[in-house]
Each structure stands twice: as C-alpha cells, then as structure tokens.
C-alpha cells in the first residue's frame, strides 16, 4: 500500500448486479437476520438505485443481491407481467445481471412482485420478493416509527386488535382490504405488503422463501418456508378472503381465482383473472397447446390445505 492507486480499483460503470460488494454484504447480513426472526422488520441502509423510491427499490435491492446469470426473473405488478413498471424492473434486472426473463411462474427462480402472489404454487427452489410500500402494520394506530418499534418489542398489539374490534362492531366485519396484518411465527405482526386477503394464506407454511422489502422505509423482513402466518382474526369470526370464488374470467374462462373487475358501460362488471400469465396459459391450453399441468393454491375457488 504505497501508491494512491491502492486506494482505488479499476474503473467500471457499476458492479455486477448494480450494487457494489459492500451494499450486497449489508443486504446479505440483514436478509439472514430477517430469516432468523420471521416477520420482524430489520433496518438496512437501503442504497439509492436507478428507479424512484416507492417504485420497488426495496424489492429490487433484495433481488439484485440474489441474482446470478442463471437466475430467471419474473416481475409482476398487480399480477401482470406486462404492466409498465414491471416491464421496466424486469428489463433493468436482466440488463445488470444477464439473468433470464420469463412471464411463466413455473420457469422463474426469483419472482419480484407488487401486490400479488401468483396463483400457481411456488416450489422450494423459488424465492418470492414482495415490494413493500409501508412495512409497519402498526402505522394506522401509531405513525411514529420509534414508538411502533417499541410496541413490537413488547409484543404490544392491543391497539391494533382494538381497531379491528371497532370495525367489527361498526361494520359487522373487519374492513381491512389488502395488506391484512398477520402474526408470523406466533410472535411478530407483519404487513404482508398490500397483497389481497386472497393471497395471505399462500404465505402460511409455504414451500418457498418470501422476502418483503421496503426500500424507501429501509426495512426488510422475511417469511421462511414452513412458517406460520396467521391473519389477525377473532375466534368467532373466521378470516375472509375476497368473494371471488364464483367469478369467471371473460378472457380465459378461468373460475375461482382473484379477479380484476372491469366496469362496463351498461352498469355491470366483467372480470379478468388478475394473474395475467396464468390466464394466458389457460387461453393457450384451450387453443390446443400442450402445457404442463399447473398446481394452484386455490382449486374450485377454495384454498387447498
């Protein structure tokens, strides 16, 4: 170490997978801790990446840390692969890593998603990375992050239970839409990110590993395989997913999956299956293409145990 050159390194526009080695090491350390304490929010530095904060930068950093050239990435937004931001993220991931791209859930090794868990059952060799806007399930009852952290430390979820109870009394049901607060491994309440209630049970005792990462809020957490994820409910009122069991997709003919509602001019609604490539595969199958059979979490509109 005698010259200035020893302070630096050969110039490159950026590292493999965009993040430099020290950023990746920090993420690796935090990802391990997240796995070790399921559902507990781990603070991390959260580097700026070349997309805007709030647009999936947390998920992006986790995915970039995992990527290798043989990875195959699927990116969805609201269930759709061709949604503009999903397309942008997929292109970026592939550009900086040489990883393969796919729309097919079964072909992917890493799935980065905003607001949905695919309908097809994920395998143990697949990792789901959920983008998280707000990692704090207690925010509606406590906006101050320091106080909320103390509440998690004390497992003090009384105020959260109280708001759920008030909803029961006032509206006859719990009014939480997406991002349903859930108890992980019997200890930490987490927000599963704004996935619909339909998707939360897919995280419970799953075969795959899920990371949830909030870049702007600088927190990441995980649900390892075979980990209990229990939506907060009262013992006499069971958890209720969206009533999409009987809806049929007007494009693919699929019934019993989470649907997008499309308002019609005549005042009615039509529906299309939200997991867009799942729908495409159904159409292709109906057109005679031989596709491998697909295992899904829901069958005939009911969650399979």
């Amino acid at each position: 170490m005698t010259s200035l050159a020893s302070l630096t390194k050969p110039w490159e526009a950026f590292s493999y997978g965009f993040l430099d080695a020290s950023a990746k090491r920090e993420l690796r350390r935090k990802m391990l801790k997240a796995v070790a304490v399921p559902g507990c929010q781990m603070p991390y530095a959260s580097r700026e990446v070349p997309i805007a904060r709030g647009w999936g930068t947390g998920g992006l950093q986790v995915t970039l840390t995992l990527l290798k050239p043989t990875s195959v990435v699927k990116v969805i937004d609201q269930g759709a692969d061709d949604s503009v931001n999903a397309a942008s993220i997929r292109k970026f991931l592939s550009r900086v890593s040489g990883a393969g791209k796919t729309w097919d859930t079964g072909e992917a090794t890493i799935l980065q998603s905003r607001h949905r868990v695919p309908e097809e059952v994920l395998r143990e060799d697949q990792i789901l990375v959920l983008q998280v806007p707000n990692p704090e399930p207690l925010r509606p009852v406590e906006p101050n992050m320091s106080v909320a952290r103390q509440m998690h430390a004390d497992a003090d979820y009384g105020r959260l239970w109280l708001t759920l109870y008030e909803q029961m009394v006032r509206s006859g049901r719990i009014m939480q839409g997406a991002a349903y607060p859930s108890l992980v491994n019997g200890r930490h309440v987490m927000t599963p990110s704004p996935i619909p209630r339909w998707d939360v049970p897919k995280l419970h005792m799953a075969r795959h590993l899920t990371f949830l990462s909030a870049g702007r809020e600088k927190r990441l957490y995980a649900v390892p395989p075979y980990t209990r994820v229990e939506p907060l409910v009262f013992s006499d009122v069971p958890y209720k997913v969206e009533e999409h069991h009987d809806l049929t997709c007007h494009r693919s003919g699929l019934t019993g999956y989470f649907m997008n509602e499309i308002p019609q001019n005549d005042g009615s609604s039509s529906f299309e299956v939200s997991d867009s490539h799942f729908g495409i595969k159904a159409i292709r199958r109906s057109e005679g293409e031989a596709l491998a059979p697909i295992d899904t979490w829901y069958k005939n509109g009911e969650l399979q145990p």
């Binding site: 526009a13 950026f14 493999y16 080695a21 050239p69 592939s94 550009r95």
Partner: peptide, 13 residues
C-alpha cells in the same frame, strides 16, 4: 447499461 462481467469474488460470495 450492459451486464458487467461477474468477477471471481462475486461468484464466490
């Protein structure tokens, strides 16, 4: 941006 090469350290880590 084009994908940079993956160095030996990156592969090992």
């Amino acid at each position: 941006i084009t994908a940079p090469l993956r160095g030996a350290d990156e592969i090992r880590d």
